[in-house]
Simulated assay, not measured.
Amino acid sequence: MYFLTKELYFPPVDEATYEGILAIGGDLSTERLLLAYRNGIFPWFNEEEPILWWSPPERMVVVPQLYKVSKSIRNLLNRQQFDVTFNQDFRSVIRNCQQIARKGQDGTWITQDIIDSYTKLHELGHVQSVEVWQNGELVGGLYGVDLGHVFCGESMFSKVSNASKIAFVTLVQYLKDHNYKLLDCQIHNEYLEQLGAFEISRETFIKVLKS
């Protein structure tokens, strides 16, 4: 594992540990975050811990051009119970992602430093949000880092049933329409798998990222 200094640098991703930890320390500056994402690296750490930088051996992804919307989600979309917007309330989205209770999780990795850093990235146009509204109330959404051909999803939330699914599928359709190559979902979990994401090797992911 590499210990970062003030130098704007990351080691090669194949030097990550078996679990995927590549480096520790550094900062959450705009320049370092963009360098990380452009090289298949992302920060993930708990409150009161040093910054951990990850590049896992398997990457959870969606290929927008190949994505098939399930019948149940199509039915949800057809009911038109929700309104969806892009970049209309990023701050509320990231704050809800921080505060929403998650099964099996104690605390959050979305610290105030994370919020400040990604808000700055959003203001610079590098981070996008999707908002899901019901009767004028924000009930779901997600945000992520937009690299122009790969969208790196960071977190999502849902206050009512299916709201995050609507955000996810709407984002995938947007990425498909704009010829993105991948939606990066980072690390496997069952919910993402249910939504249609699957794992590819780090090597394949980096190849697409660099193409």
Rank of each mutant, 00 (worst) to 15 (best):
E193W: 12
Q81N: 08
G140T: 09
I41K: 00
L76V: 10
N162V: 00
K103C: 08
Q81L: 08
I166A: 05
W109V: 12
S158Q: 13
K159R: 15
W53S: 08
S29W: 06
F168R: 09
E131V: 03
I41E: 00
I41C: 08
A163W: 04
M60E: 09
R91F: 14
L52K: 04
P57A: 09
V208S: 11
I24E: 07
R91K: 11
H126D: 12
Q186R: 14
I200P: 13
F151M: 06
V84K: 03
R102S: 00
L52C: 03
N179P: 04
L142C: 03
V208G: 06
H178R: 15
L183C: 03
E7T: 14
E48I: 03
A36N: 04
E31C: 08
Y18L: 09
S117A: 15
C97T: 08
S155E: 09
R202G: 10
V139H: 01
Q88V: 05
A16I: 05
Q173A: 06
E193L: 11
A101G: 01
I41F: 00
V150E: 08
H122S: 13
R59Y: 01
P12E: 15
R102G: 05
Y191F: 14
D83M: 09
L34F: 01
V13G: 03
F151N: 03
W109L: 14
R74K: 14
